[in-house]
Every structure is written in structure tokens, then in C-alpha cells.
Amino acid sequence: MSGPTLYGLAAALLVGLGLYGVLAQASPLRRVLAFNLMGAGVFLMFGVAARRGAAAGLPGDPVPQALVITGIVVAFAATALAVMLMRRLAQTRAEEAAAAASSAPAEHG
């Protein structure tokens, strides 16, 4: 078995693992993390395709490699947005709990 094939199989496993995590995990943080694992698997698959397409003296096809670089940055942006949504949700819940506990009129902050 060649190196790229091995990495390709690892990528398939990562996609499977990540997908299971996204669907079966209960905590939002772990879901985001699992989504990133799945993304890593997809990127790795692109990397394997790039490696297999090595030609013209290059170690790999630069087109899928450039797509992966773009993908990594977009995945980071999406992860950040998800984490910030979780933070806001936690804040809102804490505010609601505090308001319910003091049974005073809900004040902002």
C-alpha cells in the first residue's frame, strides 16, 4: 500500500468519526470539534488527490492544495462564529437564571 492511499483511508475514517461526533454528541462544543475533525478528513482527501496528481516536477497538484488553504481559513471563521454563538447562549442563560433567582424585573447586563 502506498503512502497516499494510507492517508486516504485515514481521511475516510476521520470523515466517519467526525460525522458520528456531529450527530451523536450532545454538547455543542464537542459537536463543533467533531465538525472540525470531519473537515480535516475532507481536506486530507483533497491532499491525497493533490499528491496523486503530482506532475511537472511538483510534489503535488497545486490546485487542490490552494483550495484546502482557502478551506482551512473558512473553517476557522465558521468555528469562531459557532463558538461565539455558544458563548452568547451561555450568557443569555446565565442572565435568565439570575433574573429568575432574584425574581426582580429582568435588567440588562
Binding site: F43, G47, A50, R51, P59, G60, Q65, V68
Partner: peptide, 12 residues
């Protein structure tokens, strides 16, 4: 990524 010959991706 380095093993796959994609050093640009590895850095990112």
C-alpha cells in the same frame, strides 16, 4: 501535510 508534499497547507 508535509508528508503529502503540501508545505503551504502544513504552514496554514
Amino acid at each position: 501535510w508535509v508528508r503529502l508534499g503540501a508545505v503551504d497547507v502544513a504552514l496554514t
